[in-house]
Design a protein around this nucleic acid. Structure first.
Lengths: 216, 216, 216, 216
DNA sequence: GATGAATGAGCATTCATTCAT
DNA sequence: AATGAATGAATGCTCATTCAT
């Protein structure tokens, strides 16, 4: 067997990544102040001092976590934008469905929650989060809306506000799950994604939209 | 000596309210962990020890703050519900407009932000917040949607999910302002309220809704 | 008896002073780095946190200690200067004797030792120490030497360097005691003060000095 | 492969010397507590772990540094002693001049400063420093003084105290430079050496000493 | 009741030392 | 022999909580 040495011996390059993973889980779960570096170290399977080889301070670790998450999601957002240059009617359901699915396997909603909490304490981090994720995603959606308006598919109106109309409900529902847990009356995210996609597209449609039945 | 007890002789009953006000402002601004009781005391104009005459722990103070806010808003919500038993088309714009205006003068968005952040740390408080505000408001809206469906005005669909569709965007926009401040590209809340109200009502409408022009 | 309450109750104004005293003893004994705030607190009879009510950081406490000592000694130096405007031959023995006696009851030699050690780490403190104590004392002595030269009592030469000649040996001997303890061969400070005073005054004297007996 | 082991293949015996040099520079500059082994290793051009192949602890390294310095200076002192068995009047100016020149190129004043500071923490090291350097040098000087007294050249008095009178001023001035840097008013060491040598020899002289002018 | 000095558990951070490679 | 990542005990500092006045 090649599993040889049980302790550290494993790829040292992976160490920072293991730490970031552990930290991400704990920050997303407990917030910044309630996360103890002792716990991060324990969860990462290293000693407390080891954290400091890679990150100068707790804050630096938090920043790394946020950056790591943003970097991952940026690509997804960018790609999604290019893939759907055409049809808003296809893009919106896909986007919302994806967001709905992000709850379990993704730390983004959890970290979003924490950023909300600590945004005042880390204004520059909030700015990065905003510039690189929030604003970018809104711009992407607003851009697609604008194009659809040019094609006459969407009613007049501020595309940016439409972007809020599109992603607002699923975002709030995600936070709802984050904050209140998935209790009995928490919304079914996929159902919401599906129903809201249809509803909002209808509402934005130029005339009698998305109506499969031929107008007599 | 009767020389005018220079300090406390004001109604003792008023003290808790001053404390709660001060605490509400600071909790809403900085979150639970980042709020120091020293600051609360200073802002309330009392000594630190005085806080403990009225509240056993920092957490108890936080609970009182949340309860206080909830109590205030409950009445509003309840009344709003009764006042608009009739028309969803009138209720939704009014509701969103009101929410949009709540940003400046109201601590609710700030505290909502904090509840979202600290919900995990205070599950029972989160439960109160949920039961007494979030769920109640959602139920109210969902109830109105259901009635509108009964009247044939709104398309079929889960009324509760429609409720998310209605209040999601303005909620997210409020949080956006809370988190990122009112920077250049932050959405204009009143414009969003107005545009989204129209859009979502259109999207929910049973057929060709809100169309003043008679179909020939 | 009025010794009433055993714990804190005693003049709270004295608290900072008690802390400074305890800190002075420990800093003078162990240096800055080797002094633990836990020990300072224990020695001062207070809790660790109490230190922070009066001093923001360990460094601030150290500064307070140094300032405290300087303030005390400044007065002595100033007065000594005024008292002996006349005679170098009387001033020098008195000064050296006093310095010799400072070993036991005075923390100055100990702190001088520490300042020597930490001067590089606290350049501004070193500057204060220098400006307010070292330079001032040297100036005082140099001034008296210069006057004596004007009166023709002392040979030509740089008065400032004469000042070093006067206080150098006793200073080094004090440090010797500080560093090596009062072991067998450590110099007898009072004897040194007496012998050096006579020797250096002879050496500085314009001609055949201090020679009461007329040369036949 | 024989491709020139890019790293270590230089004489292993030389390594300790490089380490001791680096450590001496840093200890002399920053003191014991403020010197980090990381820095010593970096300055010596080796890895941190390498230090431990040659020195068991930080303290052991410090001892080695002190020993190294002492060994170097012992020879000088011994030789100087033999070379000047005759004349105090020639020896003293030479000794002080040499001490004055030691400031720049020599680590001794710096280490002396540190020994002074850390003497309490390392009593046995202080003992070595004392026995092998301080005491020896004092003995040397005292011995020469005693001989001069036997020859009737120096007035009666404790030779050991005379030794302090001789080297005290230049020692203090060296420490002055060490502690306060060479600021404007720091004494000119060579001038002090010259002036003090003449002054103290005069003061110690049996009668009318060093007087070029013939007594009429 | 009110005060605020005092408390001390809790936590981030440093750095000498170890040890698998 | 040399390396440097990993370790964890030690310590400065914070802040919710207590309590003598």
């Amino acid at each position: 067997m090649t599993d040889a040495k049980p302790k550290w011996n494993r790829r040292k390059d992976a160490r920072p990544s293991e730490i970031v993973d552990a930290a991400m889980a704990l920050f997303a779960e407990n917030g910044f102040a309630n996360t103890k570096l002792d716990d991060v170290a324990r969860r990462a399977g290293v000693a407390k001092g080891t954290l400091y080889r890679y990150f100068d301070t707790k804050e630096a670790l938090f920043r790394a976590v946020v950056q790591h998450l943003l970097t991952n999601h940026l690509e997804v957002v960018e790609k999604a934008g290019k893939a759907f240059e055409g049809s808003l009617a296809e893009f919106v359901p896909m986007l919302l469905k994806r967001a709905a699915q992000s709850l379990g396997d993704d730390r983004l909603p959890g970290l979003a929650r924490v950023m909300l909490a600590e945004g005042r304490a880390f204004p520059d981090l909030a700015a990065v989060w905003h510039d690189e994720l929030a604003a970018r995603m809104l711009d992407l959606i607003a851009g697609m809306v604008a194009k659809a308006q040019d094609r006459g598919e969407v009613r007049p109106g501020d595309p940016r506000l439409y972007a809020f109309s599109i992603i607002g409900p699923i975002s709030v529902a995600l936070l709802y799950h984050e904050a209140f847990g998935s209790r009995a009356d928490a919304p079914d995210l996929e159902a919401l994604a599906s129903q809201h996609a249809e509803t909002i597209l209808r509402g934005m449609a130029a005339s009698i939209p998305y109506q499969k039945e031929p107008t007599p």
